[in-house]
Design a protein around this nucleic acid. Structure first.
Length: 211
DNA sequence: ATCCCGAGGG
DNA sequence: CCCTCTGGAT
C-alpha cells in the first residue's frame, strides 16, 4: 500500500461517510467512557439500549457507585460479559473519584490505569472525546485493515502502527470512525458488500467479490 | 457456528 | 501465548 492509494481511499470514504462519529449515545465524556467499556464484544445498539435506561438514573461516578454491583448488573444484563464489566465499571468510578477528582483523565497512561480500560478503549476516548489523532483498532478496523491492505498485522497493535504510518495526516482524526463505519456497514465480516464498496478497485482483499 | 467498537488473568 | 468472560443477532 502506497501513500497515493491510501489518500484516495480516505478521500472516497470521507465522501461516502460524511459524518464519521461514534454511534454510542452519550452526553458527556464520562458517559462515553462507560459506554465504550460496555461495548467490548457487544454491539453498539445493545449498549445504547442499556445506557438509555442507566444514564437517566446514574450518569456520574458517584451515582453509579451508589447502584452497587447488583444494581448496575440489572441495567447491563443484556450485554455480553456483563459481570466483569459491572465490576470494572464500579472500580473505574471509584478510581475516577479517588485519583482523578471525578473527571475522566486525558492521557493514555491514566486512562489505561482504569479497570476495564485497555489500549483500544483509551484510544477511543482520546480520539472521540479529546480530538487526538489516535486509531483504536477494534474488530472492524482489524478486519478492514487486513483486507484492504491499509494495515496488515496479526495483532491489533501491529495494525494500529501500520495505519498510523499510512493514513494521511489530514484524515488521521476521522480515520478511526471512517474505518469502523466502513467495516460495520460495508466491509462486514461474513458477506462483505463489495458491490456497494466505494474503494473496491483499490482493495487488496483476495476474497473480494468483483462485480 | 460466528461475530459484536476487548480486557485481565494465568 | 492462551483462556475466560457472556448475551443477542445473524
Amino acid at each position: 500500500m502506497n501513500k497515493e492509494k491510501s489518500e484516495e481511499i480516505f478521500r472516497r470514504l470521507s465522501i461516502a461517510i460524511p459524518a464519521p462519529k461514534t454511534e454510542l449515545n452519550h452526553n458527556s465524556v464520562f458517559e462515553l467512557l462507560i459506554a465504550v467499556i460496555l461495548s467490548a464484544q457487544a454491539t453498539d445498539k445493545g449498549v445504547n439500549i442499556a445506557t438509555a435506561k442507566l444514564y437517566p438514573v446514574a450518569n456520574t461516578p458517584s451515582a453509579i457507585l451508589a447502584l452497587g454491583i447488583e444494581g448496575l448488573e440489572r441495567y447491563i444484563k443484556t450485554i455480553g460479559l456483563y459481570h466483569s464489566k459491572a465490576k470494572n465499571v464500579l472500580a473505574t468510578c471509584e478510581r475516577l473519584i479517588e485519583v482523578y477528582g471525578g473527571e475522566v483523565p486525558r492521557t493514555r497512561e491514566a486512562l489505561e490505569s482504569l479497570p476495564g480500560v485497555g489500549r483500544k478503549t483509551a484510544n477511543v476516548i482520546l480520539n472521540t472525546a479529546f480530538g487526538e489523532p489516535t486509531i483504536a483498532v477494534d474488530t472492524h478496523i482489524f478486519r478492514v485493515g487486513n483486507r484492504t491492505g491499509l494495515g496488515r498485522g496479526k495483532t491489533p497493535l501491529a495494525v494500529e502502527n501500520k495505519l498510523m504510518k499510512i493514513v494521511p495526516k489530514a484524515y488521521m482524526k476521522d480515520a478511526h470512525h471512517l474505518l469502523i463505519l466502513h467495516g460495520r456497514y460495508t466491509c462486514v465480516a461474513r458477506k462483505p458488500k463489495c458491490d456497494e464498496c466505494v474503494i473496491l478497485d483499490l482493495c487488496e482483499f483476495k476474497g473480494k467479490v468483483v462485480a
